[in-house]
Structure formats: structure tokens, C-alpha cells
Design a protein around this nucleic acid. Sequence first.
DNA 1: TAGTTGCCCATGGTATCCCATATCGAGATT
DNA 2: AATCTCGATATGGGATACCATGGGCAACTA
Lengths: 162, 162
Amino acid sequence: MQRRKRLWRVMDRFLSNSVNRIDAKGRVSVPAHFRSVVQKRGYTELYALRCLDVPAMDVGGLDLLDRYEERIAQEDPFLQTADDMSFFCHGDGTFLKLDQGGRITVPDFIREHTGIGAEVAFVGRGQFFQIWEPGRLAAYGAEARARLLKLRQGTKPGERPE
Amino acid sequence: MQRRKRLWRVMDRFLSNSVNRIDAKGRVSVPAHFRSVVQKRGYTELYALRCLDVPAMDVGGLDLLDRYEERIAQEDPFLQTADDMSFFCHGDGTFLKLDQGGRITVPDFIREHTGIGAEVAFVGRGQFFQIWEPGRLAAYGAEARARLLKLRQGTKPGERPE
DNA sequence: TAGTTGCCCATGGTATCCCATATCGAGATT
DNA sequence: AATCTCGATATGGGATACCATGGGCAACTA
């Protein structure tokens, strides 16, 4: 493993996806591969943020939060936009502590937003990953594919549908 | 602007949200995580200020006052607005003492301004936190997210406004 | 004196630690 | 190719520490 140096950049990202079960106490194992990425990146804690337009959470290290805060710093701090952004990334975000077994506990407001019940789908997104309710993820994936298909069949190159 | 050295460690910020109940004596527990942030930041007292445009209170250390004064300073000191703001904030600002159990007592004027009755919603805002009547918070949150979503609509597909 | 405020402890519920067991997967062996 | 072996991973459950919450008591106050 150590000798394939060139692959480290690649291995350093959140890739692929899997579904894990939530136990009676509300805990779910973060996939081992994701945990190793977390460790390589030196994160001690995970930051989870409610997605704006889909029933999912973005999860990543603290640099995810840093990126948002830097973005907020660019706004006039006393205008509505800055306040909305802070409200969103601080109020709708939360830390997720990994326990010694590599599990996180899914709090209620995450369940409400995502519809997560008995199972959690983990989806790698490169710099971060997402958690979904498996059924909704499948539905969303189907929609996305349908949009792409429609785009390819129904429109001329360069044109946007609808 | 030059990037100032981090005054607080990364995890020492108010994040996430939760709802606690007010008991018969008017006391409510400040979420344990917020209390630990308060301690890490070395706040000896909590200061609460009326929010200018929403039915909530901003709560934090004394540096919270700096933030308000910065805002007031932006107004022309000869206009009525600055004086109104000062009156509104300083006049109705108050210290909230944490008792040994980590609870605060919610005074009447906070109830009047926020509509808080039986429950209090605590919302992390990074450098400080807010308290809301849970229902009003939900409504305001929906509005804020809608505004942000509209902002994002202006960006190209696939782009994220981070 | 009645009401308020702060301190203390009791209780139930939840999160976390730790260990046991089941499940999975990669590589070796046949 | 099919099976076996073993380490890593996912999952379940008991024990425990922490936390939100309610109520008693004493000191203070209007």
C-alpha cells in the first residue's frame, strides 16, 4: 500500500457509496474508507451541514466550515445575506463526534431533514461526503439521470432545457 | 483584509441548535455544548441583546457589544437611527447568570420580545448564539433558506456558492 | 409574608465507552 | 475457479457517565 505513492492524492478523497444500518441507539458506522480519509486529513471532528435544496447532509472536516465562514466574511456583516449565511451554516450545521467504534449518532433534526430512519446511505463527493435516506437517494439519482438524458436527447448542443 | 490569527480554537464556536423546556420557575438549561464553549472562551458572564429585526435575543460574551457598536458606528451619529439603535440594544441588554446547574432564568421582557413561552430554541451563530421561540425560529429559518436558494439560482448549474 | 433568586440533590433519559459477536473481503491454497 | 483462512469491519448490548429537568430549602427583597 505504501509504495503506490501516486495514488495517495486519489485515496485522499471521499469516493463511492454504501448503506449502513442504524442500531437501536441511533448509531451508525461511518464506512471505514471514509474514516481513513478523515484521519489522513487530520480531522478530529466531523462537521455536518443541511443541504439547501435536497434532503441530505453534507459532511466533512472543519475546512468545510472554514470555507463557508470565509465566504461569509466577504459579505457586509450587517446585511441580510451575511446573516442568512451564518444562520444556515452555524444554525443548521452540527458537529458529529465519531465514537471509538467509528460510529456517529444521528440527531433528530438530521432525521427530519433527510427522512433517515433505519438506514443511512453514505455518498462520497470528493472533498466531503453526503448522507441520505437510501430511498430518496435512489429517487434523486433517477431524477438526475432523467434530466441528463432529456438534456442529451431533447436539446441542441449548448442549449439548456426548459 | 489580512487573515488574523485565530483567536479561538476551531471547535470553540456556537454551532447547531436544540430546544429545551422552561420549568415552573422560569429556568431553562443552556445546552451543555454551548456551556463548554462559553467556558473555553473564558466568558465569565453571558450578555443578551435584543436583535434589531427579528424576535430573538443575541447571547454571548462582552465582545458581543463590540459587534453592535460596530454596527451603530456605521450609522451617522447625527441621525436618529444611531440613537435608536443604541437605545434599543443597550437599553434592553441584560446579563444572564448561569446557575450551578447551567441554567438561565428568562426574564419577562425577553419573553415579550421573542414570544417565548414553554420552550426555548438555542441556535448557534459561531461567535454567539441566539434564543428563539421554536415556532418562530422554524418560520424564519425557512425564509432564510429560501433567500439563499434564490441566491444560488443565479449561479451556473453544478456550481456551489461556497 | 409572599414572591423571587440561587444552591443543592434526585431522577429519568440519553450518549459514550468497551467488549462480544456476526459479517465481509482479500489473498492464499487446492 | 472454488474454497479456505484470517484480519478488518459492521453491529449488538451491558455498564457507566453526563445532562436536562423537577422539586426542596435557605437567603434575600419588596
